[in-house]
Design a protein around this nucleic acid. Structure first.
Lengths: 256, 256
DNA sequence: GCGGCGAATATGTTTACACATAATGACGTT
DNA sequence: AACGTCATTATGTGTAAACATATTCGCCGC
């Protein structure tokens, strides 16, 4: 019916000021990225009200002169972004408060250090199986009296202390960890490499360095330090619980 | 050729233990979610090595007995998740270090408070146009001497101080902000409601409360506090710069 | 052996069509 | 008026086919 337009390659959603070839809509929005751009523009310009319903896929396809499939791809992308909200028979609405998402590449500490142009190093301070404190046992879902692998290590940035890591690994979930030596590869990286998929929770807070932490990190006791607590799960079973205390001055960067 | 299988509704990626009806593959992976599940399983079970290349879309489609389109949808979803890596002629690989993403619902402070079951309130401490410090002017991309709207406010959780916010809004980017009174609706919410799309950066750190912050937050000077710095942009122009200091004990929670 | 060029190939995208499914809303019954 | 039922409708998904595009690989000439 109409020769297929030029593909735009594997670009992701963004890129607003693009692809809207003509001023008049209806003359050529034949790629899904162009549809994304046009829909985005209409919302930004207030042509479509926040919270309001927008035309159906079929109507938009007719207006833009492309297939419903293409419109579907575009609207789905915007829905994934949290900009639109779609329900089956109810239609598509512009979300009131777009739920922004910040994404962190999960901090493999080595990368944090190397990204700053420093040389990474790490020492294992302690590595042995022992009975974890109650709070940790609860997080790992262990029975009372069960042991877990306890590894404490210090991450270095050009020989200066960078972060102090206190980790418990569930031997029930990851038996192989018991027989691994973590002085060459850090526990973090070993886990990331050997336990493919995981979910979990991260808690971030500010705390005062304890005397021991201060000694390890080379600062005064009581200095404000950035603390990250993380629980990692594979399916239902918790794999590891980590508490990382960063040396003073650390700043975590996220991108929305 | 083969009647279309039952659709599975708008479910998202996850859901591993699902839809794989039979043990023998090749007997019925006709939905993209089922393909996601099977591919996920093969990686988790080590059938496909980390870093290794996997069969092409066409081969998988043939094996699974579905169309290439369906396989494409599934692999694209996994690539979006960071589990696979795809390049045009090179094929699809299992990523070495799956770049996990933690997603934060952007903290509209009111929601943080209400999620804890407390009543939210806020006071505007100061609101006026003035010349921002150099660092802020640079972040906002303002010329030297240009003014911006400065709003400082205190967020309350059940009448207790929760967070102290120090915000600069670019009047060049958001002229309407100059004539708005933010005692009823917080600046944050007003912006979120009136400036639809935005990107930006967030910095998280631990700091010691200054004397003024301590007074406002009701704690001792020097107490470790959690600090969030955020820059929000619309396209190229920066809209607002915020520094939020949370009362001691605050813990930010993220989900991977 | 090296460099450039063209063929082969895997993914990216669009189309047209079909059917599935969830809400909605209209309608008729009680 | 309240309630249940059913047709309608918008989105969700799958299929087959075609073309677009980026790489890679092998071949050829030097």
């Amino acid at each position: 019916m109409r020769q297929p337009g030029p593909s735009h390659g594997g670009r992701k959603v963004a890129a607003v000021a693009d692809a809207i070839a003509d001023d008049a809509p209806g003359t050529g929005l034949r790629t899904w990225t162009a549809v994304v751009a046009e829909v985005t523009r209409r919302i930004a310009d207030g042509e479509w009200r926040l919270g309001g319903i927008i035309p159906s896929e079929a109507e938009l396809a007719a207006e833009f002169g492309c297939s419903r499939n293409t419109v579907n791809r575009a609207l789905r992308a915007l829905a994934d972004q949290g900009i639109l909200e779609r329900k089956r028979r109810a239609g598509t609405r512009v979300r009131h408060l777009p739920e922004s998402r910040a994404s962190i590449g999960i901090p493999v500490v080595r990368h944090l250090v190397e990204r700053r142009g420093a040389r990474y190093g790490h020492h294992v301070l302690e590595q042995r199986a022992q009975e974890p404190p109650d709070a940790v046992a609860a997080s790992l879902g262990l029975a009372a009296g069960a042991e877990a692998l306890h590894v404490t290590s210090l991450h270095l940035s050009d020989a200066a202390p960078f972060a102090l890591e206190d980790r418990w690994v569930s031997l029930a979930a990851v038996p192989a960890a018991a027989t691994t030596d973590f002085s060459a590869v850090s526990v973090n990286e070993w886990l990331v490499r050997n336990v493919p998929f995981s979910t979990g929770e991260i808690g971030l807070s500010a705390g005062a360095a304890t005397a021991e932490e201060a000694a390890r990190l080379g600062c005064a006791a009581g200095t404000p330090v950035f603390v990250e607590d993380r629980v990692t799960r594979l399916g239902d079973s918790a794999i590891t619980v980590v508490r990382t205390v960063f040396a003073p001055g650390y700043r975590m960067r996220l991108t929305i």
